[in-house]
Design a protein around this nucleic acid. Structure first.
Lengths: 277, 277
DNA sequence: CGGTATCGATACCCGTCGGGTATCGATACC
DNA sequence: GGTATCGATACCCGACGGGTATCGATACCG
């Protein structure tokens, strides 16, 4: 299945084999075996191009989930073994730079619990927490709806807040008490930047490409972009940026999320600490 | 992993090997390899007894989920291949005997859609739908909260209803207009029956053991048990049974549930038909 | 207290399957 | 039409999964 996912993502046997660290012929045969076992043509291949069939697309989705589940099983078991000897705690995934004070409060509240264990923070990029939770790199995560997808997890709401638009400090609109989405969307010369998708490629569009928040703030400060962020990011802003409340932006809900079958005491404790605080 | 789950469930290498259709020595070695690969003692074993360690319990939970995901991937791919040739539709799992008219309405509403495909009904026993959805035997399911666990699925609420208690027709309380849980719990000689758990064993307790609804109704009719059911089951009751509204029972919510990553048009259509009706 | 039965571990053997290299056959491109 | 690219095929090898026979430990019983 790992092999199939690699080929389906690359749509190229040679590159997929390289990525998997094996030669191309065994890969071809492995895919053939898989097709025979499932009784389905997964890939439409000519000697010049490879394309997914309908069943192939289904398998790609399902196989990704299955591989994540297998990896999660291995990782969580390894961590459980370490935890038994006191060498590991619980892994909390959070977006770097988001909900900082909420996170601090949560960690304090949990640390005060009687049977608290070590909390290993896993700071990740945009939308990566979901994956971390799925493949067992993390045990709990802070997500921001509607930006992150919480589908398939148990969640508990922590906070709902409105959003602000970030502008260069000297911008004509920086003094306004409120703005509407429509006004922001048509700001001349201040498009929303584009973030890389999970595979590292950027979506089509006209905004500048950014990779992290430092680049983002730099662009906004330079008057080349604007950005929309939750209100709670305001106190930690650089002073060359201005924040103007958005009147009609969808509210952002911060939730704590965990795999639905989680039975870990530490996760339960974190959730308790989070909802109590 | 299949091997480990078998041993963890049986807590006996010999029986597990038999269940897996292999000999005992290869099974021993397989478990050893797994333990070495994960760097964790999974089972505490003497020559007389086998017990799960802490990491072993974690792996048991995670491995079950992972195996379900793998099976789901295979099943859904096979069905997608059949669907491409028009030989298969979408599988809807429902509890036999529950929500019958709601189900009928749903099927009618969906069949009227322009691009409706065949709906294969999968009637299952108490609490089996969740499993069916997880391992790919079903694509959508009707669940009854709080009896069924919908954790990990996307759901849409269809109906909420109160519950009634089923009594033999001639019972002294059968004429009452309402009862409280406390009264039902202490009905002399009318305990709630026990249903088998997923492994086929019955929980400890004093109620009679039942395996299906026919047995259940028979017991109620004979004055050996009572039963609590959603109000909607009333119109289809045998006339030797009486139903009395329960005033303080938790309401039952019927939901339609599907795997969160499902991208199937047919599932979307069924959900649309269900929520519209 | 010794005999026995039970149960997991170990020793040894074998076939299959995953992986590698060399090469073919087809197709797009110059 | 020559060539380069790319997946499929042919052939070989080592490792791993599975089987049988047997050991070692422990609980049970007369």
């Amino acid at each position: 299945m790992r092999y199939f996912v690699a080929v389906a993502e690359e749509l190229h046997f040679g590159r997929a084999a390289q990525r998997l660290g094996i030669a191309q012929p065994p890969l071809s045969r492995a895919i053939h075996r898989l097709e025979r076992r499932l009784g389905a043509r997964l890939l439409e291949r000519t000697s010049r191009a490879v394309a997914l069939t309908e069943p192939g697309a289904v398998l790609l989705r399902e196989a990704r989930a299955a591989l994540d589940a297998v990896e999660a099983a291995e990782r969580r078991t390894r961590r459980a073994a370490l935890a038994a000897t006191g060498q590991a705690g619980v892994v909390l995934a959070a977006k770097a730079g988001a909900s900082t004070e909420l996170l601090a409060k949560l960690l304090d509240a949990y640390a005060a619990e009687p049977d608290a264990v070590t909390v290993d923070l896993l700071l990740c990029g945009i939308g990566e927490q979901e994956r971390m939770l799925r493949d067992g790199r993390a045990d709990v995560a802070l997500l921001h709806l509607p930006y992150d997808a919480a589908a398939g997890f148990d969640t508990e709401e922590l906070r709902t807040e409105s959003q602000v638009v970030l502008l260069p400090a000297g911008h004509p609109l920086a003094g306004r008490t409120g703005l509407r989405m429509a006004e922001v969307a048509e700001l001349p010369g201040l498009p929303l930047p584009r973030w890389p998708a999970r595979d590292g490629t950027y979506p089509e569009g006209r905004g500048p490409q950014v990779r992290d928040h430092t680049q983002l703030y730099e662009l906004v400060s330079l008057g080349r972009a604007c950005w929309i962020a939750p209100e709670s990011s305001r106190p930690r802003l650089r002073d060359d940026l201005a924040a103007v409340p958005l009147l009609d932006a969808p509210p952002v809900t911060t939730v704590i999320a965990w795999p639905p079958h989680s039975r870990s005491l530490a996760v339960a404790g974190l959730v308790r600490a989070a909802t109590r605080g």
